[in-house]
């Protein structure tokens, strides 16, 4: 049986909001370590990997591993019945055919309970190989979102070039081209505004603007985002959570 209590429903609401356009049906794998989700988008170009560790819940109990098959459109409908500040409890029995979602307001004088029907989902699981990334860029998530937004109207692709001196985002389309360069910077007062580059060798990757912009739906979950790049390999876009992470992988565009 699973029982997980989150002090603020907003975390779970934001996580589901962030992935529901990429993924429709998926299994939430519940173990004693927490809740995990791994799913590819329908065109098999990107992968979402979510981990909410048990210590991020104010109460967590999972006696037996469970795979909860969930339609995220339906889950969204139910999560919208609760307020961001509500305490959220997720509950499912070992052979349950539904997930119980409970909301309790902070004054503890309003409780609501919804049941979401579960589905049987035969989902392929992918092995994510250990990758030696050539570059790791940590930057404000709002800055990454702004770049992707600005460039979406110019080109279907964004090229990310990373050197020790900085990271350059370039786009080229029918109407013209554009680039944004960010140099590493640090501010002790506002570490969330820093840009940090760890580089073992210069690297360049071209990626779909549409997918990168989709990942930016997670912006509200974390002030910083980390991009990890290796030549001719999928990019890893990671939003750290207070207990866990939301990761997106996207296969690159390569010359024919």
């Amino acid at each position: 049986m699973l029982e997980g209590k989150l002090e603020q429903a907003s975390l779970f609401k934001k996580v589901v909001e962030a992935v529901r356009e990429l993924v429709q049906d998926c299994n939430f794998d519940c173990t004693e370590n927490g809740l995990a989700l791994q799913a590819m988008d329908t065109s098999h170009v990107s992968l979402v990997s979510l981990l909410l560790t048990a210590d991020g819940f104010s109460e967590y109990r999972c006696d037996r591993n469970l795979a909860l098959g969930i339609n995220l459109v339906s889950l969204t409908k139910i999560l919208r019945c609760g307020n961001n500040e509500d305490i959220l409890t997720l509950e499912a029995g070992d052979s349950a055919d539904s997930l119980v979602v409970r909301f309790e307001n902070t004054q503890q004088d309003r409780m609501s309970e919804y049941a979401l029907k579960l589905m049987d989902i035969d989902q392929e699981h992918l092995g994510i190989p250990e990758t030696e990334y050539a570059a790791s860029i940590t930057m404000p998530s709002t800055e990454f979102q702004r770049i992707c937004r600005d460039m979406q109207s110019i080109s279907e692709s964004i090229t990310i070039d990373c050197t020790k001196g900085g990271v350059k985002f370039t786009c080229e389309g029918d109407i013209g081209s554009g680039s944004v360069t960010l140099k590493p910077n640090s501010s002790a007062d506002k570490p969330e505004l820093c840009t940090k580059i760890d580089l073992s060798e210069p690297v360049s990757l071209t990626l779909s603007t549409k997918y990168l912009l989709n990942f930016c739906k997670a912006t509200g979950l974390s002030q910083q985002v980390t991009l990890k790049l290796a030549d001719e390999n999928p990019i890893l876009v990671e939003y750290p959570l207070s207990a866990g992470h939301l990761r997106f992988y996207l296969a690159p565009k390569l010359d024919e």
Partner: peptide, 14 residues
């Protein structure tokens, strides 16, 4: 011309 790769060519199915 650049072509979008699929993820399965990098990440094996378990």
């Amino acid at each position: 011309i650049q072509k979008q790769r699929r993820l399965l060519s990098y990440f094996p199915e378990i």
